[in-house]
């Protein structure tokens, strides 16, 4: 708890000095959202390790600075895993950072999001107070669901010091199958698998190739595999995809993400990668801002741009009503505006 006290002192001082803080974990996600120059940095990186883990409870409580890789390795040694495929953009990526950014990997449509597996958080508030919300049990409806509110809030509400996550038994067998096919064939294959009980746990269409991951009992995986065309591919494909490390991503100067409904048409866009059963679409190297004139449902995120380091308005603007609610929540948690100012949206009067 010594580190938590240090966080608390740091935050209190920042508050009384009126000196805003950039909260970071491994600092591997500064490309997401607006990060103003010259902020003092408070990192959770030194606060790493396991606080509580009883495999039979299917719950792990970790310090926020724990690297995702370390956590995954520990769970694996107990035959368990985090179901939502937390994306590790770099070796330094921390679990606190992934949860703060609300990021989920390939399994999202089939096994749920980061927020679905978050059971509790311990956080340091703007006045330095350490508070706990949620807890280390599967079901808990005491008080508002602050843990899930903090998930995906990009550290704008406070410093997440520790978190409790639901874990699941690792599948007996996991297999990736790749097949060259048309967009329509890819869509139909995914649809038929996801609309029946199947071990489908990830799907991606990119450059004429449909990749499918099956996870589950050996019986279930083999039974489904029998009916699928294609060749076996490497399971590491999904980590590469989730971490934006596939070659297509690495060569792109601009990356736009569209999160939409699986059934939404592709319209005129030439998406390079379609994953999450076509609900997450990646547009690389566009000539213009795709938000202008987009006809469909869903929302765009500017994930990378070579037009300077500028990342303001990385996220789709909110409606007036939504923005008001956001600003009111923000000022409840952070009246002095010291946590990650402007990281998601402009704050009223700050």
């Amino acid at each position: 708890m010594e580190e938590v006290e240090a966080f608390s002192e740091f935050i209190k001082k920042a508050g009384s000095d009126g000196n805003p803080i950039q909260l970071t974990g491994g600092e591997t996600k500064s490309f997401l959202g607006y990060v103003p120059e010259g902020l003092q940095v408070l990192t959770t990186q030194s606060y790493a390790g396991i606080l509580d883990y009883h495999p039979a409870e299917l719950i792990i409580r970790v310090k926020a600075g724990t690297p995702v890789g370390t956590l995954n390795a520990l769970l694996q040694s107990e035959g368990q895993m985090l179901a939502f495929d937390p994306p590790a953009h770099d070796v330094g990526s921390t679990i606190g950072g992934v949860v703060a950014a609300g990021l989920s990997g390939s399994a999202r449509p089939y096994r749920g999001a980061a927020r679905d597996h978050l059971l509790g958080v311990g956080m340091v508030l703007h006045d330095g107070a350490y508070c706990e919300f949620g807890g280390q049990v599967m079901k808990n409806v005491a008080g508002y669901d602050v843990s899930r509110l903090v998930c995906g809030a990009y550290g704008t509400l406070g410093l997440m010091a520790d978190l409790s996550l639901k874990v699941v038994p690792a599948p007996e067998l996991e297999k990736t199958i790749a097949r060259v096919c048309s967009v329509d064939q890819a869509r139909a294959t995914i649809k038929s698998l996801s609309n029946s009980v199947s071990p489908l746990s990830a799907s991606c269409y990119s450059g004429d190739t449909l990749s499918i991951r099956l996870s589950g009992s050996e019986l279930a995986v083999k039974a489904t595999e029998k009916n699928l065309e294609g060749i076996q591919a490497d399971n590491s494909f999904w980590d590469q995809l989730d971490a934006l490390r596939l070659p297509a991503f690495q060569n792109a100067s601009d990356i736009w993400r569209l999160s939409t409904e699986p059934d939404e048409p592709l319209y005129e866009y030439d998406f390079s990668i379609l994953d999450w059963g076509f609900a997450q679409r990646w547009l690389l190297d566009p000539t213009s801002d795709p938000r202008d004139g987009y006809r469909g449902v869903g929302h765009w995120t500017r994930v990378r741009s070579d037009k300077g380091g500028f990342q303001a308005e990385a996220f789709q603007p909110l409606s007036k009503l939504e923005l008001e609610l956001h600003q009111r929540l923000k000022s409840t948690f952070d009246p002095g505006g010291i946590f990650n100012p402007g990281r998601m949206y402009r704050e009223e009067g700050l």
Partner: peptide, 24 residues
Amino acid sequence: ELIVIGGKGYDTPGYDLLALMHGS
């Protein structure tokens, strides 16, 4: 005021108001 929270896709921009409404 009437507001739509969440969507048929897998995430929405901004804070997770959908989760906040549950159990409120």
